[in-house]
């Protein structure tokens, strides 16, 4: 197993904030994906995210969430077609989103409630809005819910390609790069 002991650049990097960072992060992820497996040295400023096919747009029905994992099998998430365009949404209707389902508070598994398109935590009652980029409606987590950045190719295949915040229970989002 590849270790994470190559981590450097632990100072100011992660306090970059806001839209500018999101753009930079997205660009880095794309570049790394194109470069293939992360053998490059020195290491990049962001972790090297894999690109994983999650499903095809034709597989999804509104409000019927699909369980997925990303960026590896130990990180559960959910792929949802919301039915109306949403923040971070992809696909022909701009309504397909994906989130980590480990609550960023204590790691309990979130469940989807279709009536108000929220993810809910049975551990300590936190709630996240799938239509608002995972904004915490109410709860104990000190992060809004990490959202998986998606891309849809010409065939309608949906790929997860990066994550916009730290997943519960790991100090680096990619454990096995």
């Amino acid at each position: 197993m590849r270790k994470c002991d190559k981590l450097v650049d632990v100072g100011r990097r992660h306090f970059l904030r806001g839209a500018a960072t999101a753009v930079a992060g997205g660009a880095a992820a794309t570049a790394m994906t194109a470069a293939g497996p992360a053998e490059a040295k020195p290491t990049f400023a962001r972790v090297n995210y894999p690109s994983h096919r999650l499903a095809n747009v034709s597989d999804l029905k509104v409000d019927q969430p699909l369980e997925i994992t990303y960026p590896d099998a130990d990180s559960p998430g959910v792929l949802i077609k919301l039915g109306s365009p949403a923040e971070g949404g992809v696909g022909p209707d701009g309504d397909i989103v994906a989130f980590s389902t480990l609550c960023p508070h204590k790691g309990f598994p979130l469940h989807y409630i279709a009536t108000d398109k929220s993810l809910n935590c049975p551990g300590h009652y936190s709630r996240f809005d799938c239509e608002k980029g995972g904004m915490e409606i109410w709860g104990q987590a000190t992060e809004n819910l990490p959202q998986f950045l998606l891309r849809v190719d010409g065939k309608g295949d949906i790929y997860a390609e990066a994550i916009d915040d730290l997943i519960y229970g790991r100090l680096t989002n990619v454990l096995k790069a």
Partner: peptide, 8 residues
């Protein structure tokens, strides 16, 4: 939604 964009 505010995100810190922290990955490690």
């Amino acid at each position: 939604a505010f995100k810190r964009n922290i990955d490690r």
